[in-house]
């Protein structure tokens, strides 16, 4: 092998395991789901129905309800959680904080708790009659809140649960990225007389940029697929106030056995993400020029 061919082959060799595994275990499922999205099950057989499922998605009021709910949760929860996670990571990285290892583990605990326990604990916390949160509210003289029965508060409950669940996870990603910011940059900044805020603004944030891109993309995709929280807490209710796209897709596949329609919803979701990504790229490019 010539030197230049070897150099050209290098990245593909590093990629080879991923490409092989991807073709073996992802390509067929992704293709099969696409095929299913063009079929409807009639009389016990998959019948080709073209783009029917897609036009059904676009005219399905429940899909749009789910879309709106998902978008609202996305707009509120992701920014709040990521800002908190950045601050948390900076604190975890700072020598000013005592007992750092202990706190890191504490904030990581929620992500490890299994789905079933998660559901039980939160329904105990949010119960209207004898839940812990309402016990706190009534004991300081405030009225009870119908956490899961009121559309607004049901959405807030999902937002709180999500933040509780994933805050530590994101903080760990930031914490790992913080380690790659050379100490010299901070030293140089402090020599220049920058205060803590300036250091954060001009050294920490730019250094975190790759991790911020990562978490924004991941949280956006994760929230668009949001399923677990409404599944264990609200079942999508009350009256569809917390029905998410992920939840609706699950219902169509595993409750209604309408895999064709569920696959179409999945691909619409993918389309939305691709559009978002393109829009984001355009905006960034315009800002750069």
């Amino acid at each position: 092998m010539s030197y230049s061919l070897r150099t050209r082959a290098t990245p593909y060799l590093f990629l080879a395991p991923v490409l092989i595994l991807f073709l073996a275990f992802k390509a067929y499922p992704v293709g099969y789901a696409f095929y299913l999205s063009l079929t409807t099950r009639q009389g016990g057989a998959d019948t080709f129905t073209g783009l029917d499922n897609f036009s059904r998605v676009l005219s399905d009021p429940l899909f749009w309800t789910a879309f709106r709910n998902t978008a609202e949760i996305l707009a509120v929860q992701v920014p709040v959680m990521l800002v908190l996670a950045i601050l948390l990571a900076v604190a975890f990285d700072s020598k000013v904080l005592k007992a750092r290892a202990f706190f890191r583990v504490s904030y990581f605990v929620p992500i490890v708790m299994g789905l079933i326990a998660y559901g039980i604990v939160f329904s105990a916390l949010l119960n209207y009659q004898n839940g812990f949160l309402n016990w706190v509210l009534t004991s300081i003289g405030l009225p009870r809140i119908s956490w899961l029965g009121d559309p607004f508060w049901a959405r807030m409950s999902i937002v709180m649960a999500l933040t509780w669940h994933y805050l530590g996870y994101n903080a760990v990603i930031y914490l790992a990225q913080l380690q790659s910011i050379p100490q010299e940059l901070y030293e140089a900044a402090s020599v220049d007389g920058a205060n803590r805020w300036h250091q954060f603004r001009h050294v920490t944030l730019p250094g975190l940029r790759p991790a911020i891109v990562l978490t924004v993309v991941l949280s956006t995709i994760g929230t668009l697929q949001l399923f677990e929280e409404p599944y264990v807490l609200t079942n999508g209710g009350p009256d569809n106030a917390t029905l998410t796209i992920g939840m609706y897709l699950y219902e169509n596949a595993f409750k209604y056995f309408d895999f064709g329609y569920a696959s179409a919803i999945g691909y619409v979701l993918t389309g939305i993400v691709v559009l978002l990504a393109l829009a984001q790229m355009l905006i960034l490019r315009r800002r750069a020029s």
Partner: peptide, 30 residues
């Protein structure tokens, strides 16, 4: 920097956006 870098990365990332509930059955078939 290699030909297909953006495309391959984009496809891998896009595959993530397809919820696992719709790829579960074909994966089971495999």
């Amino acid at each position: 920097d290699f030909p297909g870098r953006t495309l391959i990365f984009g496809v891998i990332l896009a595959s993530m956006t397809l919820p696992s509930q719709v790829t579960l059955v074909p994966l089971f078939q495999i």
